[in-house]
Design a protein around this nucleic acid. Sequence first.
DNA 1: CATCCGACAAAGA
DNA 2: TCTTTGTCGGATG
Length: 921
Amino acid sequence: MNAVEIEEAISALAELPFDGGEFPFAFLQAFGNKDATIKRLRAGASNSSDLGGVLQRNHIHIAVCVPGAATAALAALKVSPATTKAKARFILATDGVAFEAEDLDTGETVACTYADFPNHFGFFLPLAGITTVKQVRESSFDIRATGRLNRLYVELLKDNPDWGAADRRPDMNHFMARLIFCFFAESTDIFFGDDLFTATVAQMGAKDSSNTHEVIGTLFRAMNTKIEDRAAANIPRWADAFPYVNGGLFSGSMDVPRFSRIARSYLIHIGGLDWKKINPDIFGSMIQAVAEDEERGALGMHYTSVPNILKVLNPLFLDDLRARLDEAGDNPRMLLNLRKRMSRIRVFDPACGSGNFLVIAYKQMREIEATINSRRGEPDRRSEIPLTNFRGIELRSFPAEIARLALIIAEYQCDVLYRGQKEALRDFLPLDAENWITCDNALRLDWLSVCPPTGTGVKHQADDLFHTPLDQAQIDFVNEGGETYICGNPPYYGSRKQTKHQKDDLLQLCGKRIPKWKSLDYVAGWFLKGKDYIERQPATFAFVCTSSNCEGLQVSVLWKEILQGGIHITFAYRPFKWANLATNNAGVTVNIVGVSNLVSRSDRKIFDGGQVRSVNNISPYLLSTSNIFVDTSPKPLSQLSPMITGSMPRDGGHLILSFDEAAELTHAHPHAADFIRPYVGTDELIKGNQRQCLWIEDDQLSVATTVPYIANRLEKVRLMRTESPLDSTQEFADRPHRFVYLAGQSRSHTIGVGGVSSESREYLPVALFDKRAVLSNLAYALYDAPVFSIALIASRLHLVWIATVCGKLETRYRYSNTLGWNTFPVPTLTEKNKADLTRCVEDILLAREAHFPATIADLYDPDNMPPDLREAHERNDEVLERIYIGRRFRNDTERLEKLFELYTKMTAEAGVGKKRKVSAA
DNA sequence: CATCCGACAAAGA
DNA sequence: TCTTTGTCGGATG
């Protein structure tokens, strides 16, 4: 169950008459417990309460008590030994009138009336396994409103199927935005009278809902018509109570979808909520899923938490504004200048979604402005920060509508907060600002037309015919001489996960100027657009992006193009895990990169795990080195043996045998052993699992297929390959006994290197295999290579290199032959060097042997590494590092610097010409 | 032919 | 349920 479903269930429970015996079970059910779980609790089997209540292990202890005893009951729960023993996180006591609860982990408490407890359901969300940021837990209203609007939206689409078609969706979305505005307006004093809108719809509309759409249409028309013009426009008197709103919100098509009885009752119900409590940032990101048919089940998936948004906005410009504020102290002149400066700052989010970043930026700036005004003794002064300076581009029409609305609401709420209700109301209507959110494709649009250079009115141009740009986007900014800050969290799609249309977006953007552009993530498009923008209008942009945008292959592809002509990275957050509202958010690892071509400030900052470091330069790997791009190399640049990717079966698993399967087969058919070989991927290499594979040479085929089991397996491979959508797989359908990609064969021995390895290991996984072993495409192979190669791979130096220049899987090390091995700089080795290193390898292998049958995973567990193995590695590092610089390196930074220096020299000498150094200034 | 990657995915604790 | 840690094979060069 997601948060919205839980909210609905809890609200439904609270509306039922209170039944003390039933309440604990109903409560647990509402939080998504399975029927079987409830049954066991009911039967008492899993109920360990010592107070006659209901106690669910690790979760909650609930007691229903006699009237007036809730507080005492809660106290009893708290000291109950059973509560402690069962490690209950929550305790809850109610008598049906009062409701009290405590989160024993955090010490937070809830005390309210029983009827009111659904308003605190966010408090209990951990019960459903939903661990989420505080802001969301405390946003019961937003979750509730989202759920209700979601239901209304679905219901209306059911009643008006034509509104669901692509060409009517924008109308539908605009309609929803108007409704939300009305709900907000009637809950605040923007509309006079309590629930004016909902009440009018309820009273004027027929109970059978036949004319609901007409009533709403009339109200919308009224709000789009000045009071003095209403009589002429034939607007009935009962709509007079509604103010003139305008602001583009009520302009355009006045069509209203038809309402069924159910839809009408939903609408009236939603109107009953207290919309004052809306958080425009949180609500917006939750509500945007409503219009996406496929996302509706996962409300809140795209929530970007406020702390994460501030990770972008603070270093981008808010920190600086606050520093200036501190500097100004009470000096009226300096405060005035800062206020003037802020009034001309433009914030532009070219992937704005429902306007999260813009809303937060606006609120933060209003907070600073309020401090200025209060220090200057002008507390209720009207804000000089124009909403029109907060601009966005959003592809989907519903979020675009919501973004505009969210900003309007944020402005009103800021006015109430800083200037008071009266001042806020006086200035609110009619909405004078037009539209700052352009609904269009950000990668197809000239950003200068949406966010034009200071003082010029560039016309909006789009070459995408699917989206009609809105005229209002052409209005000028109030920002003469002002600064521009571009920010956002654009969508990510890996190079192979893009749709045709998305690929085309990148094609027109960089097809002509970037070799290998097809390897880029979709998010790279925003960085390129940002670069194109600041080249013409110097500025700074900062985006959240998938970590691979600054790793491995993509570094040289993307960043060589961006870091030109004085453009540099001004700040960066090293990769961190993104969090959303999903229960099991495996999520994604992201980083944040700020790019600028303004006169460089000396303080470039790298944020890494709560630490901040000021550095002189930030490389595209987001490290404080100079800008070096390591490109793939088809063969080793140093004197190293060739390393190849292991063989790829593309067999649907049918050529692979488990240890048992292989044993059974050879038991039944001893000669089948000829066709069975050990199969080694990363998992086998690290964990020592044993898998086998069928490996049949062409000339063995007829013999092999006499074994029915093998023939059967091969037939399955053939089928799987025939059904593959990929030509290169289909090609091999008639040769099912063969792996699709063969990595060659070894004559004496094979050195295998893991393709992925946990970042907690201090050395990369590498092992020696006999010649029969088949390395899978998830491992890399050195055939018949000198054993000292292992000394290099297993060294700290190599790990540092791989960690820096190769890709990652989330945060794990991901090996690559072309990117990591072939580029690894090694000084020329003498025969003595090689002999020394070989001895080191022997020591390492002997130390491993001594702990047989421990696997690499066991041996290289950083907390439990056997001392003799660790010593062997230390000696290996010692010998190798002496070859590089005549002593041990002090730290990884020094290792990397030396490696980069050698790499630069190597690529320059070899004339490979891959190296390009871009001025850091 | 030969990779590099995944708004991840499955196994393990 | 949360933590840990690497499958598999497609799209791309």
